[in-house]
Design a protein around this nucleic acid. Structure first.
Length: 292
DNA sequence: AAGCACACCTGCTAGC
DNA sequence: TGCTAGCAGGTGTGCT
C-alpha cells in the first residue's frame, strides 16, 4: 500500500525533521527487517553518521550518510553511502520527539535510531516485509547499484510519454501489469495504477500492446495528475493497511479515490456501480462504462 | 524471454 | 458470538 505518494510524504518528513541529525545509538530488535546485510552491518554503518539528505526513488527511501565514514569490514568501499528503507506492505517510520525512551514502544518495532537532538526514529512493521540496509556503491545521482533496475521516477525524472509508448507496444501483458512494473515507472503500485486507469478512461485489463498512441499519452497525463494530487494530499490511508507519516498522521487522498476500494459504489462520473476483477493476480477496480 | 505463480507475513473481515 | 479461512499486496525467485 505505501506507494510513491506515501513514501514521498515520509521523505518530506525526514527532510524537515531528521536531516542534519547525527545517529548516536542504534538498536535492532527484529532481525528480519535487516535481513539483507544483518544487524551488525546496519549498526556499524549508522553509528556516529550524519543523516545528510533524504531522497527517494520509486518506493525506496534513501537517506544519505555524511560525517565520519568508518573503514569497517561491512562497508569497505570508499565514497558516499546511504541508508535504504523500503516499507513494503506495512512498514512505518515514526519519529518520537519526546525524550528518548519516554514514549511507549509500539508492537512490531524492529529498529530504533537515537538521534543527537534527543529524538528517536523507529521502524515499525507488523508484516516484516519491509527492510533497512546501508549500502555504498552509489552512482552519480546517489542511487545504489541494487536499485539500478528501477525505471524513471515520475516525480524525480518525470514521465516521458514517448518512452511509455515505446515500452507499451512491445508487450503483450495487461495494462495493470505494465503500470506496476517498477522497471517501467518506479513507484506506481496497485492503488494508483487503478486510479490512473480511471482517469485515462482505460480498463486495467486491456492488453497494453493494443493501446493506441493517444491512449498511452492520455495515461501518462493521468499518472502525473493522480500522483501529484496524491502527494499533495499526503497519500492514502486505508482502513486495514494503515499508512501514516513520520508523525503518525494519516493521508487524505483516500477521500478522493474514484475506483480503488469502491466496489459496488456509484461511479463519480456516471453513477454505474464500480466493478472489481482480478488482473494479473491483482485486485483491479474500474467503471465499466467510463473505462474502455 | 517475458510473464506468470508463488513465497514471504500479520491483521482484518466475510462467512459460517 | 466465536471461530476460521481467505484476502490484502511489493518484491524476489523460480519455472515455463
Amino acid at each position: 500500500v505505501p506507494e510513491l505518494p506515501e513514501v514521498e510524504t515520509v521523505r518530506r518528513g525526514l527532510q524537515d525533521h531528521v536531516v542534519g541529525r547525527r545517529v548516536d545509538h542504534v538498536v535492532v530488535t527484529g532481525q528480519r527487517s535487516v535481513r539483507r546485510h544483518g544487524s551488525d552491518a546496519l549498526i556499524a554503518g549508522l553509528n556516529g553518521r550524519r543523516l545528510a539528505s533524504a531522497s527517494r526513488r520509486g518506493k525506496y527511501l534513501l537517506v544519505g550518510l555524511g560525517g565520519s565514514s568508518p573503514q569497517c569490514r561491512w562497508h569497505p568501499e570508499p565514497g558516499p553511502q546511504a541508508l535504504v528503507v523500503h516499507l513494503r506492505m506495512s512498514g512505518q517510520l515514526r519519529l518520537v520527539r519526546a525524550p528518548a525512551g519516554s514514549v511507549a514502544v509500539a508492537a512490531h518495532t524492529h529498529v530504533r535510531l537515537w538521534l543527537d537532538d534527543g529524538s528517536e526514529l523507529r521502524f515499525v512493521d507488523p508484516r516484516t516485509f519491509g527492510e533497512l540496509f546501508v549500502t555504498g556503491e552509489l552512482d552519480g545521482r546517489g542511487v545504489p547499484a541494487v536499485l539500478a533496475g528501477l525505471g524513471p521516477d515520475p516525480l524525480v525524472e518525470g514521465i516521458d510519454p514517448e518512452r511509455l509508448w515505446q515500452l507499451a507496444t512491445r508487450r503483450r501483458a495487461s495494462l495493470k501489469a505494465f503500470l506496476i512494473d517498477q522497471a517501467v515507472l518506479a513507484g506506481v503500485g496497485n492503488l494508483y495504477a487503478d486510479e490512473a486507469c480511471f482517469r485515462a478512461r482505460l480498463r486495467p485489463g486491456r492488453s497494453v500492446g493494443g493501446l493506441r498512441r493517444a491512449e498511452v499519452f492520455r495515461l501518462a497525463r493521468a499518472l502525473e495528475e493522480v500522483l501529484g494530487e496524491a502527494v499533495a494530499a499526503g497519500g492514502s490511508t486505508l482502513r486495514d493497511a494503515r499508512y501514516v507519516d513520520l508523525d503518525g498522521h494519516p493521508g487524505s487522498f483516500q477521500d478522493h479515490h474514484a475506483v480503488y476500494g469502491r466496489e459496488g459504489e456509484p461511479c463519480l462520473g456516471c453513477g454505474h456501480p464500480i466493478r472489481r476483477i482480478r488482473v494479473s493476480g491483482r485486485s483491479s477496480h474500474f467503471c465499466p462504462t467510463c473505462q474502455r
